[in-house]
């Protein structure tokens, strides 16, 4: 039982990180119909931005984390919005899908060629000391990850539901045409979504890299988990992405312990197939009415 609780907590910690990546993915889809096949790489790159700041320019650790988040917002937010998505969005979904696939290859290869093909250790904010409560030992680092991720999610929910800008963003997501008629600056709202996505991906990156090391190929798994979390939870719901992320984190940890490490990666995929078979709108999703 204590084993189970330990696995549950560490599962929630990684799950919260997955949720961050999945939320960004869902937001992009909602506001601009962008399926970002480079989402996994968006979670891989910021850790390397921090490593570059630390190792090449000698910036202190905490400052380089902040720099990494800001640089990600600029590169993976603003530049992504205007250089890649902007010219393609009017051409329909396929060119954009292809372009983000190419972008994922570009990011992966750039990190491999310009930084390193080896996995890099990444420092953690909190020490790895174990805390034992009632026989259950959890590391402080894990609790820290869980706390940071949850606070980010709560802040985001508050922003989306409680502020004027957040509600304008939701209006843009639900119906851009009506939002524009009502005077919502739709273009700016879409840019905000890209900024938020980049910031969430950067947070996820900085939280996950101390656990799984930073490596150029990490994006493949992370991206896949982000898609699966978004679909399992419900493609059109932010809270769906949160639930999906947490669920996959926990299942992943339990599967690694109780089923087999060789097929650990298969668990989210099987979950995806089950959801598509039995509850295609996602666990928390609403049915989307089709136009035809």
């Amino acid at each position: 039982m204590t084993d189970f609780l330990q696995l549950l907590i560490s599962g929630l910690a990684t799950g919260a990180i997955y949720a961050l990546a999945a939320i960004g993915f869902t937001l992009l889809w909602q506001t601009s119909q962008t399926i970002n096949f480079a989402q996994g790489e968006f979670v891989m790159v910021p850790a390397f931005l921090a490593l570059i700041a630390m190792r090449w320019f000698g910036v202190p650790f905490v400052a380089s984390l902040v720099l990494a988040i800001l640089a990600s917002m600029l590169l993976l937010g603003v530049a992504f919005r205007y250089i890649i998505v902007g010219p393609l969005i009017r051409r329909g979904v396929l060119p954009l899908v292809i372009s983000t696939i190419a972008l994922s290859i570009l990011l992966k290869e750039s990190v491999k060629d310009f930084y390193s093909a080896e996995a890099q250790t990444f420092p953690t904010l909190l020490p790895d000391t174990l805390i034992t409560v009632a026989g259950v030992s959890v590391s402080l680092a894990q609790l820290g990850v869980l706390a940071v991720a949850l606070v980010t999610i709560v802040l985001l929910q508050w922003f989306l539901a409680g502020t004027r800008t957040g509600r304008q963003m939701q209006a843009t997501a639900q119906n851009p045409t009506v939002a524009r008629i009502l005077g919502v600056p739709v273009e700016r709202m879409i840019l905000y979504t890209f900024l938020i996505n980049a910031a969430l991906a950067a947070m996820a990156s900085l939280l996950v890299s101390p656990i799984y090391l930073a490596k150029f190929s990490n994006g493949e798994t992370l991206g896949l988990i982000a898609f699966v979390a978004a679909i399992v939870g419900g493609f059109n719901q932010v809270r769906g992405a949160i639930a999906g992320g947490l669920l996959i984190g926990v299942l992943d940890n339990l599967a690694a312990a109780y089923v087999s490490t060789a097929y650990r990666q298969a668990i989210p995929l099987i979950l995806l197939v089950l959801v598509i078979l039995f509850r295609p709108q996602g666990l928390l999703g609403r049915k989307e009415e089709r136009a035809v």
């Binding site: 393609l88 051409r91 696939i101 190419a102 290869e109």
Partner: peptide, 19 residues
């Protein structure tokens, strides 16, 4: 080592100008 990098850029440019 650069091949995939060049290919990816090529694809993105193609998509932007000649879909």
């Amino acid at each position: 080592t650069w091949y995939l990098l060049i290919y990816a850029v090529l694809v993105m440019v193609m998509m932007a100008f000649f879909p």
